[in-house]
């Protein structure tokens, strides 16, 4: 669905290509800045996102994740590479085509909501329809429908700044959904919300995805959020991707020390599944558990009965076994 291929973004300086060359030769950000006056925002990033997948890009501030998503929506012009949407390179499009794809296919939710303070909630919601010239009655009807799905019907005639942060972001989401886009970009949408609201919103997003899966690229600096929402996660550092993988792969096998630092505080038993901790091979008797069972759910079974558990795949074949000692190091980690 989305193919990001060798995307670069260089800020400042007159010669982005020189900065890219230097970066290719392995020079550090500081060296490049000193030599060319340019800062590397995004460094040779490639990945692809499947239809209906939630792809999370996780990184700390300054890692280039916001720049990346702005390159992917072409809010800023990448310095190199390509962003394919259904096989068409977004970067080759002229303004007219770009506008068309934005009006029909992709949409975005912003960190600070990006709502228009001079428009009522309903008119914010209907904005994407309004710029397409859809008549007022129709666009208001569709916007009202969307507001109903996010539970804000009564607030339609208020101005966004009169709503709480969580409600404002619901407006932001409703505004994006009105277009029924196939692709949704989320730029740290929940970072500005307090933790309890954040959790609610994450759950709602999961529910929304379950009802009608869309292709989502989700930016966050919160590793736990990435694990909750992502089918796959890309971890960014200094403009480049350190590792891409499923939540489980990343927690079980962090590719770099940087990635490992994020995983240390994560309760691994809630991320890892039986398949990640099992010893592959024959069953040793005992109860059978599915390969996708989280380790946390195995613990009571293992302690109820000393025998190792047999792990079976989707088809019911035994693919390995888990004994108490296989998970003991995880428990030690968590007890620490």
């Amino acid at each position: 669905m989305i193919d990001v291929s060798h995307v670069w973004k260089v800020f400042g300086g007159g010669h982005p290509q020189r900065a890219i060359q230097m970066a290719d030769q392995g020079h550090s950000r500081a060296d490049i800045q000193a030599a060319t006056g340019s800062t590397i925002g995004v460094r040779d990033v490639s990945f692809s996102v499947q239809r209906g997948e939630t792809f999370v890009v996780m990184g700390l501030s300054g890692s280039g994740k916001s720049t990346l998503i702005r390159c992917m929506s072409r809010l800023i012009e990448p310095s190199g590479g390509s962003v394919g949407i259904d096989g068409v390179n977004l970067l080759d499009m002229n303004d007219e085509d770009l506008r068309t794809i934005r009006r029909t296919k992709m949409s975005m939710v912003f960190q600070h909501f990006g709502l228009f303070p001079h428009r009522r909630v309903i008119d914010n919601c209907a904005y994407g329809l309004e710029v397409q010239g859809i008549p007022k009655a129709e666009r208001h009807a569709r916007a009202a429908e969307m507001l109903a799905t996010v539970g804000l019907t009564e607030w339609a005639n208020h101005y966004p700044q009169q709503l709480s942060g969580g409600m404002q972001q619901r407006v932001g989401i409703a505004r994006a959904l009105v277009l029924d886009p196939e692709i949704l970009y989320f730029d740290e949408p929940f970072s500005a919300l307090d933790p309890l609201i954040r959790r609610d919103m994450q759950n709602e997003l999961i529910a929304l995805q379950a009802r009608r899966p869309r292709t989502i690229v989700f930016i966050t600096h919160d590793f736990a959020e990435a694990l909750r929402l992502g089918n796959r996660i890309a971890i960014m550092k200094d403009g480049a991707i350190d590792q891409i993988g499923t939540p489980e792969e990343i927690v079980a096998h962090p590719a770099t020390d940087y990635v490992r630092e994020f995983t240390t505080d994560i309760p691994k038993t809630k991320v890892l599944t039986a398949s990640a901790v099992m010893r592959p091979g024959q069953a040793l008797g005992g109860r059978q558990v599915a390969a996708t069972t989280k380790v946390a759910a195995l613990i009571p079974l293992l302690f109820a009965d000393a025998a190792p558990l047999s792990v079976i795949d989707d088809d019911g074949h035994v693919i390995g076994s888990v004994a108490r000692e296989d998970i003991s190091h995880l428990l030690e980690d968590e007890a620490r």
């Binding site: 702005r70 929506s73 809010l75 506008r99 068309t100 934005r102 009006r103 992709m106 949409s107 975005m108 912003f110 960190q111 600070h112 909501f113 990006g114 709502l115 228009f116 303070p117 904005y127 994407g128 710029v131 397409q132 505004r175 277009l179 970009y185």
Partner: peptide, 17 residues
């Protein structure tokens, strides 16, 4: 706020809009 300008772009506004 730059985000509202971004939002304007993302929803396909022309320069005039």
């Amino acid at each position: 706020p730059p985000e509202t300008v971004d939002a304007g772009h993302v929803f396909g506004s022309s320069r005039r809009q």
